[in-house]
């Protein structure tokens, strides 16, 4: 009895969560104005792809999609590379003041991101990065959170594996690329997913550093679109679907590793 109750509550909550999402997709296929009729419709009378066509051709959404893709992939790639190198070094290398340095870096996590926005903006401006992909990629290349995550995971790798690789004749870089990275795969997928989704969905920072409209990312472009086409619900929904789909695909594809990664990071074997 209790089991059925739990299941029914779960189903109700699931439907409640999924309904807006479902309506977003369905409304994006409705013809103009159909989404605002009373009583509201759950499904379109006929599938209308014109909003997607409009977005991708007239409203230049393809360009924004490309911007978002380049930036998100760039940030993900570099952050995985640099964070894993730093995390591994903090976990396994012996160097002077390692603990103190790590604590200092960790302590910087309590500073809210908004505080550093202006100084980072000014630095990037002096470097001439404003309105380029670098304006988002460079500040996102390393994060304390990422370093911390990788370090905690790398701590669980036995030293003897690294020593065995040394005896086998591996250089430091070979150890990193051929032993450490493959072993860190679950945590790398997790961090990659976090980073990709975080960058893809980020709104504030791209809004600040991308003043040229051709450099907008999807969320910024979408917000811009809203102010212009506020009454065109169906078009907005189509834009939202295009924004969400890539993240959704990445998440679903990597989901099983992601869960493994979170579990494995927390429990030391």
């Amino acid at each position: 009895m209790k089991k059925y109750l739990v299941i029914s509550i779960a189903i109700i909550l699931g439907v409640m969560t999924f309904l807006p999402f479902l309506w977003m997709i369905s409304a994006s296929f409705m013809s103009t104005g159909a989404a605002n009729t009373y009583p509201p419709k759950l499904f379109p009378d006929k599938f209308d792809f014109s909003h997607y066509q409009n977005l991708l051709t007239r409203l230049n959404l393809a360009r924004y999609l490309l911007n978002s893709l380049v930036i998100s992939l760039g940030v993900t790639f570099f952050s995985l590379l640099l964070n894993s190198m730093a995390g591994y070094a903090f976990a396994k290398y012996r160097f002077a003041r390692k603990k103190r340095l790590f604590k200092f870096l960790l302590s910087s996590m309590i500073i809210p991101g908004q505080v550093t926005m202006l100084p980072v903006f000014l630095i990037l401006k002096n470097m001439g990065f404003i309105n380029t992909y670098f304006a988002i990629i460079v500040p996102g290349m390393a994060s304390i959170f990422g370093i911390f995550l990788i370090r905690q995971y790398a701590l669980s790798i036995p030293d003897s594996l690294i020593e065995a690789a040394k005896m086998d004749g591996a250089t430091e870089l070979q150890i990193y690329f051929r032993v450490i990275l493959p072993l860190c795969k679950p945590i790398l997928v997790t961090l990659g997913l976090f980073t990709f989704m975080g960058t893809w969905n980020d709104f504030l920072w791209p809004l600040i550093v991308m003043t040229d409209s051709s450099m907008y990312t999807m969320p910024v472009a979408l917000a811009n679109l809203m102010s212009e086409h506020v009454q065109d619900t169906e078009l907005m929904m189509a834009g939202s679907v295009i924004t969400i789909v890539p993240v959704l695909i990445v998440f679903l594809a990597l989901q099983k590793y992601y869960i493994k990664g979170i579990m494995m990071g927390s429990v030391k074997e």
Binding site: S160, L161, E163, A164, A165, M167, D168, A170, P182, L183
Partner: peptide, 19 residues
């Protein structure tokens, strides 16, 4: 360096590469 000493070692916990 270890790799240039031309020696091989067997570890207590085997230290096999799990992947």
């Amino acid at each position: 360096q270890s790799k240039d000493r031309d020696i091989a070692m067997v570890f207590q916990n085997y230290a096999l590469y799990p992947h």
